Amino acid sequence: MSSSNATPNADGGRADPSSDDTAGDKHQKESAKVEAVCPFCGSSDTELESTFGSEVSKSQFYCNGCHTIFERIKYDGAMPDTGRERDGTR
């Protein structure tokens, strides 16, 4: 009996795992919602190149204007949960 990573579909057969392109869809949705301006030429015609850059907290973008790759810090505007109350005390 051979082992397969594919999951069974509705009729009991095995689905082809390579046909699942939810990762590609997620990548496109991420690049659509994040807008980055190129720090070299100022162009906003950029694309998400990689969700991870040289650090986990950075993403890589490609500029279609000057054809360079640059990094941007991932920040969604929300304050991260630190486990402390935000009353101004230490």
Rank of each mutant, 00 (worst) to 15 (best):
S4E: 03
T89G: 09
H27K: 11
S43E: 07
T7N: 03
T46A: 09
A78W: 07
K58Q: 10
F52S: 12
R84Q: 00
A23Q: 10
E49I: 06
D45W: 01
D25I: 01
G24T: 11
H67N: 14
P17N: 03
G24A: 13
S2C: 08
D11R: 08
C63S: 14
V34M: 10
R84I: 01
S54M: 08
T51D: 13
P8V: 03
T51M: 11
R90G: 13
A36S: 15
R86F: 09
H27I: 12
E55G: 03
S31Q: 10
G65D: 01
S44R: 07
C66M: 11
P8F: 04
S18T: 12
H27T: 01
E55P: 01
V56T: 10
S2M: 01
G42T: 06
Q28V: 07
G53C: 08
H67M: 07
D87E: 14
F70C: 03
S43K: 02
T89D: 12
G83S: 05
K74M: 03
S3C: 00
S4R: 01
A10V: 09
C63H: 08
G65F: 04
E30M: 14
A10P: 00
M79Q: 10
Y75E: 03
D21W: 10
K33E: 12
G13E: 09
N64V: 08
M79N: 11
R14F: 06
E49M: 11
A15R: 08
T68H: 05
S19T: 12
A78V: 06
G53L: 05
D20K: 08
C63L: 05
S18W: 07
C38I: 13
E55K: 01
Y62R: 07
A15P: 00
P80H: 14
F52R: 10
E35K: 13
V56G: 09
G83H: 09
H27M: 13
I73K: 10
D87V: 00
N64F: 09
N64H: 15
R86T: 07
P17K: 12
V56A: 10
F40R: 04
E49D: 15
V34G: 02
T51V: 09
S19I: 04
C41H: 11
D21C: 04
E49P: 00
S18I: 01
F61P: 00
A32I: 10
E55W: 00
I69K: 14
D16L: 04
